[in-house]
């Protein structure tokens, strides 16, 4: 198989954007999964869909409206959840349906858009242009650096919110910061796998790495590696096989998860742990 297609500009941009989104998703996703917020990414992406529709409706660059709508909705829902004490899954359902509802209304009010709605639903990483690539790299670097700076209080807050509070971690502010980071990550990832498949990139690499029984740092490193590997493999495979890149990325992640579960069943990880303990 010739790999000449890797020299194409659109392919390189897709790989760069994909890698940036994959790293952000794996990092944000680990905290989301551990806080039992796995579907939060899905809810945010549906809000972002409403935001994109709003952008097209108002003739504004849709990425900015999507960011504004999903960040403010995420903050709003967190406040609502606290003040009304509704459960996490109900709050996610409210966000998810209101975002999609808003999007559908705007699309129908404008009698449909000239843009391809399909590309937002299922991703269009091969269509990323240079300015998108640059802004996604910038945003991703911002998310990654912020997560690294706040990694210790974030871990403490995720593990035990009350102990973190006693230790003087500004729990509420950190929560809002984290939600904003999650919303921005979703915007970046939407281009890669689309609104409907975002949860896969947030959840799958993390639950796969968690199966391996390592500590927090190693789990995050493994998760980032799996996420990047699946994205690169998925994009590269999609071109010669003429498949949708989002589908092949997600199915690569699913294959990794199933493979890891089978390996665990075969005793691969526990044997290693046992050997370590004996030595």
């Amino acid at each position: 198989m010739s790999l000449d297609f890797l020299t194409y500009g659109f392919m390189q941009r897709a790989l760069i954007t994909g890698t940036a989104a994959a790293v952000c998703c794996a990092m944000v996703g680990l905290y989301l999964v551990l806080k039992r917020y796995s579907l939060f990414g899905d809810a945010l992406s549906h809000m972002a869909f409403g935001g994109i529709a709003l952008g097209y409706f108002l003739n504004v660059y849709p990425i900015w409206t999507a960011t504004a709508v999903s960040v403010s909705a995420a903050m709003g829902i967190t406040k609502l959840r606290k003040s009304t004490k509704i459960s996490g899954d109900a709050a996610i359902a409210v966000m998810l349906s209101s975002g999609l509802g808003m999007g559908v209304i705007l699309v129908s009010a404008a009698h449909g858009f000239t843009i391809d709605l399909f590309s937002f639903l299922f991703g269009s990483v091969l269509l990323t242009n240079m300015s998108d690539t640059l802004s996604f790299i910038g945003i991703s670097c911002g998310v990654i650096v912020t997560l690294l700076v706040f990694r210790k209080p974030l871990l403490h807050f995720t593990f035990d919110e009350e102990q973190a509070k006693i230790n003087g971690v500004p729990v509420e502010k950190l929560n809002y910061l984290f939600i904003a980071l999650a919303a921005v990550t979703v915007i970046v990832t939407m281009r890669l796998v689309g609104i409907l498949l975002i949860s896969a990139l947030i959840v799958l690499p993390n639950i796969t790495s968690m199966v391996m029984g390592k500590g927090f740092k190693k789990t995050m490193m493994i998760s980032i590696s799996l996420s990047v590997a699946a994205t690169v493999i998925g994009i590269i495979l999609s071109y010669p096989l003429n498949l949708a890149p989002s589908g092949s990325i997600v199915m690569t992640l699913v294959a990794m998860y199933v493979g890891t579960l089978l390996a665990k069943r075969a005793g691969l990880f526990s044997k290693k742990a046992l050997a370590q303990e004996i030595s």
Partner: peptide, 17 residues
């Protein structure tokens, strides 16, 4: 959380001020 990937060392480290 049953699968929380924090080691004993990680948890003790969280207590540091």
């Amino acid at each position: 959380e049953p699968n929380f990937p924090a080691t004993v060392y990680d948890v003790v480290e969280m207590g540091l001020l």
